[in-house]
């Protein structure tokens, strides 16, 4: 054990962890800026402009402001659970980054069951929401938490089932090998990405992913017109910030998974000198994730919210049978080929 802790492998591992953790945290903080700026442009507003050039220092100002705000714990809340809930929802959201390959070598660890690990971990995030909503001992948070948990477990089914089709083609659960299986091309220039083989699975995945992360048009859990802010109504200061951070982290995770499973992950054209070839995969991966996030924000700013019964019906009566049919069709085609 002690020689492992001083070996060069361990040093490299620690550097990777620090780079990925730092990069992800920075990206998550700046996602708030991107979201506000894009939404503002859609609504013909300039968005944040005052703090720094183009409002670029706004996320830092927001963070500092969160830090110096009063940390209110409601009088009749369940104190322990109320305080623990933000951490409970933040840990699984950030932990999934430990298996995501940001490049051929930029990955903390390539678990052989990486995909299962991510699904298992991210589904724990619902505990943070339910505990937070229930422990607040207030009506809006409780309703938000109940809605959110029912919605998340309903869409988790179609989310996990949509992936099965991809697994049948790639035959692996390791995220790095999933990317490797999409390296080849058709006719020399069309990349062999799974989206061309599994378009239905991709659509199901994207819709379920938006619902999983409680984003508009599926943000029934917080729908500010009815429930104020949903399960985090009673939260303030950095606890609130942690819930927001967890939400953004989940957004990035599902976008990263979509990229890995359907868009060839970090694969892309490699040109130029040696150092550029080493850096380009990470660039391609981050760009693809960014496109997904951009799509998320556009969705949020253009599509109105679903009604709750429509939401549940859509998940159980449309997406679930569709994903089962997709599995059967894919398995049939793979079996006869």
């Amino acid at each position: 054990m002690s020689e492992y802790l001083t070996s060069s492998d361990f040093m490299i591992l620690m550097i990777k962890i620090i780079v990925i953790f730092g990069g992800v945290m920075g990206a998550l903080v700046y996602l708030t800026w991107i979201e506000r700026k894009v939404m503002a442009r859609v609504q013909m507003r300039p968005g944040p402009t005052r703090v720094g050039p183009f409002g670029l220092l706004q996320p830092i100002a927001d963070g500092l402001k969160f830090l110096f705000k009063e940390d209110v714990v409601p009088a009749n809340a369940n104190r322990f659970l109320y305080i623990a809930a933000p951490v409970v929802s933040l840990i699984p959201a950030l932990l999934s980054f430990s298996v995501i390959p940001f490049g051929p070598w930029l990955q903390v660890t390539d678990l052989s069951v990486g995909l299962l690990f991510i699904f298992a971990i991210t589904s724990l995030g619902v505990y943070g929401i339910v505990l937070g909503g229930w422990a607040s001992n207030s009506k809006y948070p409780l309703m938000g938490a109940m809605r959110s948990s029912a919605q998340m477990i309903s869409y988790e089914l179609s989310l996990t089932l949509s992936v099965v089709g991809v697994l049948m083609i790639a035959n692996t659960l390791s995220l790095n090998q999933l990317v490797m299986s999409q390296q080849r091309t058709w006719l020399g220039f069309i990349p062999r990405w799974n989206i061309f083989l599994q378009p239905v699975a991709f659509l199901i995945y994207v819709v379920s992913a938006v619902a999983e992360t409680n984003r508009l048009p599926f943000d029934l859990a917080e729908s500010e017109q009815e429930l104020v802010a949903g399960w985090h109504t009673e939260y303030s200061s950095l606890k609130f910030a942690m819930f927001m951070l967890a939400e953004y982290a989940n957004m990035v995770t599902v976008s990263a998974l979509a990229t890995i499973m359907f868009f060839g992950g970090w694969s892309g054209p490699l040109v130029g000198p040696h150092w550029l070839k080493a850096a380009l995969p990470t660039f391609w991966f981050v760009s693809k994730i960014f496109l997904f996030i951009f799509f998320y924000v556009l969705l949020r700013s253009t599509i109105p919210r679903f009604r709750y019964d429509q939401l549940m019906n859509f998940g159980w009566k449309v997406l679930l049978p569709l994903s089962l049919a997709n599995i059967l069709a894919t398995s049939f085609v793979v079996a006869i080929s």
Binding site: I17, L95, T109, D110
Partner: peptide
């Protein structure tokens, strides 16, 4: 392969 996950967990 799981040790890095543990380290990441402690960090988070």
């Amino acid at each position: 392969t799981w040790v890095p996950v543990l380290i990441f967990f402690i960090l988070v």
